[in-house]
Write a protein that binds this DNA or RNA. Sequence first.
DNA 1: TTATCATATGAGCAGATATTCATATGAACC
DNA 2: GGTTCATATGAATATCTGCTCATATGATAA
Lengths: 121, 121
Amino acid sequence: MNGNNAENCRTACFHPELVEQVREAMPGEPLQGDLAQLFKVLGDHTRIRILNALYHSELCVCDLTSILGMNQSAVSHQLRVLRDAKIVRSRKLGKNVLYSLDDSHIFDLIRVGFEHVQEGK
Amino acid sequence: MNGNNAENCRTACFHPELVEQVREAMPGEPLQGDLAQLFKVLGDHTRIRILNALYHSELCVCDLTSILGMNQSAVSHQLRVLRDAKIVRSRKLGKNVLYSLDDSHIFDLIRVGFEHVQEGK
DNA sequence: TTATCATATGAGCAGATATTCATATGAACC
DNA sequence: GGTTCATATGAATATCTGCTCATATGATAA
């Protein structure tokens, strides 16, 4: 679309063929937006703690509140964000709502992420 | 540390043993902070586009600027964030600086993330 | 050295977001 | 029905963050 604008350098650095090749290999905008949104939701301290708890067991809001040591409203707000992003599932059980990780991809992302930060020492 | 505070429910919902078990299984605070930080840096539209470009080839700042259609300052700022987070590496080559993904974990995270958002249709 | 090119950085602003407080919903039990 | 308990939600605020503009750095070439 917008090829080489005035910002581009004009000598050895600029590789039009490579640029075009990479452009075509890249996923479409909507998919990239979805991916960024997924990681953005994962990228919060409170939500990561929630996910690490759910990594080990399905839990109700009350137990999560206790584990995190936060007030219930804050936890529920973050659970809503995680649910909207299809990162956790919920099911009702009497008065309670039980939360769990949505699917194996979420387990994988958390595991691989930890491997990376642990290697960085 | 802060066990069952006044916020917790007092009936069928609260499971002290499970809560304690999950607490012990969870990673330490610094590690969880590192993980949240990793995902936070991944969770930005511009940075995801940069990473998707680098997924296919090592690239200089100028080529990235052209691929993204953004001004060079914005791209450099985001590259600094990615470098600080150990998500990309850089090496000098004459006047240029070539960027690439840091290691296989980053490739894995992008791939698994895409699998997840694509399944969600 | 001086000029030029590629990249990096600092300050400032505009938009996004996590928490708190107060309140609403909705199911279970009396 | 009405009450209690577990969870959800709306509004407000304080903090954070990405972009732009201007400028700095650092390497190459003349």
